[in-house]
């Protein structure tokens, strides 16, 4: 049979899968591997020579106090942001699936912050915190204190992502069969019990997805960080990604920055994947 020949299969694969694979290789895999290679050099980001230094960069990265301080802040920021993003998103999704008037309008409205983009959002909120709130409450800006800056960063991220995660939860709510929910009410559930015993367990995959997405996004937050606080005051709101950027491009330690980025990637991947594995256990296909 012609269809079973290896050459035929390869030909078919190249025809249909080839363009996609080539693009993916060119813009993701090759840069990633090249990036891994750069972690082994002491390249400064501009010069033509890339001296090979072995694992020196990783040794330095592990002893870079600023980096680990930024990493710690990122973890704290991520925990708060992920929790609040998901609580808010779930709540909004619940509200806009109850058949209230104009719920499509509200769905779209809550989604809008996600379309604006982190940089613009950061500047908008910076204005709100630095000018509007200061003028209204006649106080100093929240952004000028250490805790305040962190708080603002979390607040803006929650505002930014909640609408997006809401859409996933909305899909989750709609996938829960109405009959099953009604059956639980006839079986004796109050609406809170129906939510806890039936709706939430059946929406487990939505939770897994949303938590994964919000963790991976929060861990690598950069744009809002840059435009809202720019790491101020006193670097107290510098997140890991911003530290990596500064290391590579401001201090011209490209190799070091790159290896710190790889560590960030690994941390983020491990947390995210662990969460998915735990969450997927016991998940049901309805």
């Amino acid at each position: 049979m012609k269809q079973n020949k290896l050459s035929y299969k390869i030909q078919q694969y190249l025809l249909f899968g080839g363009p996609g694979t080539a693009l993916f290789l060119a813009v993701v895999i090759v840069p990633f591997i090249y990036g891994l290679y750069l972690t082994l050099t002491s390249w400064d980001g501009v010069s033509a020579v890339k001296p090979f230094v072995g694992f020196q960069n990783f040794v330095e990265a592990f002893s870079d106090g600023d980096y680990w301080a930024a990493m710690g802040r990122t973890v704290i920021y991520s925990i708060f942001a992920v929790v609040f993003i998901n609580i808010l998103a779930f709540g909004l999704a619940y509200l806009v699936t109850q058949g209230i008037k104009g719920q499509n309008f509200f769905r779209a409205g809550f989604f809008v912050p996600n379309l604006i983009g982190g940089i613009v959002l950061g500047y908008v909120w910076k204005f709100v915190f630095n000018r509007a709130f200061v003028a209204i409450f006649n106080s100093t800006s929240l952004l000028s204190t250490t805790e305040g800056a962190m708080f603002c960063l979390i607040l803006v991220s929650v505002w930014q992502y909640a609408g997006y995660m809401m859409l996933i939860y909305v899909a989750g709510f709609m996938s829960v069969s109405k009959d099953v929910e009604e059956a639980s009410r006839i079986d004796g559930c109050t609406s809170a019990q129906a939510m806890k015993n039936v709706t939430i367990p059946l929406m487990r995959s939505s939770f897994v997805q949303c938590i994964f997405l919000s963790i991976t996004r929060c861990f690598v937050v950069y744009d809002v960080n840059l435009s809202l606080t720019n790491g101020e005051p006193f670097k107290s709101s510098t997140m890991a990604a911003m530290h990596v950027y500064n290391q590579a491009f401001t201090y011209k330690n490209y190799g070091l920055g790159q290896s710190e980025a790889v560590i960030l990637f690994l941390v983020c991947a491990i947390v995210g994947v662990t969460q998915v594995l735990i969450g997927k256990r016991g998940e049901v296909e309805a």
Partner: peptide, 27 residues
Amino acid sequence: PKDRDIAMVFQSYALYPHMTVRDNLGF
């Protein structure tokens, strides 16, 4: 509905997909 003391069998069965048959029956 929970206070009417009625039981209902749905056309789609409406079993709880995440529970075992035992838990479905005993819910």
